Amino acid sequence: MNVKITVLTAACALALAACGDKSPPPVPAAPATTAPATTAPAETAAPAETAPAASTTASAPVGAGGAAVVTDCATEIEGNDAMQFNVKSITVPASCSEFKITLKHTGKMPVAAMGHNVVITTLEDMKKVAADGMGAGIDNDYVKPGDDRVIAHTKMIGGGESTSVSFDVSKIKGDGPYEFFCSFPGHAAIMKGSIAVE
């Protein structure tokens, strides 16, 4: 019983951390502010020089208003440990017959704790597909097997991984609007965006 409570507490803490403020906690900041008084200036300059180099990573380009950048009937989007996609909309060129979405998980958390995928449905079907996906479980990428409301979906991935899906563009030309979202339990509420053909 104590193990279940510990796991539940850790899961809640991770969820709160993902939804909360991205600034570092105040506790580590206090030792950092007192350290320069007892250390030589040369020691404090070195970490400042190495920090920018560590943060330079290639990320998917984002257009105006959070729109995905589309090139050659394909786009790349990112999901992170803060439960966010880096784009809010995908516009598929009408000249494309097939379209490819590549998802990169830029976080570090494992798939079981903070997995992400991309699922495409109509806006009307999104909530029902996400609810049915919870019942399908992680082994099915939180997508109900054989669900004909699902236009396309990637597999579920964890931090540092990537996955892709290609689909027939004619499937998102009918009655819309259409949405892309993450079907990991609880993520669809904020990890979502529109997808349309223009």
Rank of each mutant, 00 (worst) to 15 (best):
T34P: 00
N80V: 04
M83H: 12
T102E: 06
T9Y: 07
L16H: 10
G133I: 01
G115L: 00
F180Y: 10
V165H: 04
G174F: 00
D21V: 10
A40C: 03
D175R: 07
K108N: 11
A54V: 10
C182N: 11
N80F: 05
N86H: 10
P47S: 12
D141W: 13
A51H: 07
E43H: 14
V165G: 04
F181Y: 15
S89F: 05
G159E: 01
V92G: 05
S166Y: 01
A15R: 12
N86W: 11
N117G: 02
K155P: 02
T91N: 06
I151P: 03
F180K: 03
F85M: 05
I120N: 03
G160N: 02
S166L: 04
A54P: 04
S164R: 00
I120Y: 00
I157Q: 08
V3R: 11
P28S: 08
E198Y: 00
A32M: 10
F85V: 05
G160S: 10
T71E: 15
S95L: 07
L123S: 13
V62A: 03
V118K: 00
G66E: 09
V87L: 05
K155S: 12
V87I: 14
T121R: 02
P25D: 14
V87M: 10
M134G: 05
G115P: 00
H187C: 09
M191G: 06
A46P: 03
V129F: 05
P110S: 03
P24L: 12
P41G: 04
K100N: 12
V118A: 03
A45T: 15
Y178T: 02
N117M: 00
H153W: 06
T154W: 06
G20F: 13
M83Q: 13
A60Y: 06
D81R: 06
P41D: 09
P28T: 08
G135L: 11
K144Q: 15
A54L: 15
P110C: 03
A45C: 00
A29V: 14
P31S: 12
E161P: 01
D168E: 06
A54H: 05
K4A: 15
D132F: 00
S59N: 10
G137E: 00
I190G: 08
V69E: 10
A64N: 10
P26S: 08
M126S: 11
G63L: 09
H116S: 06
A37D: 15
T39G: 06
K108L: 09
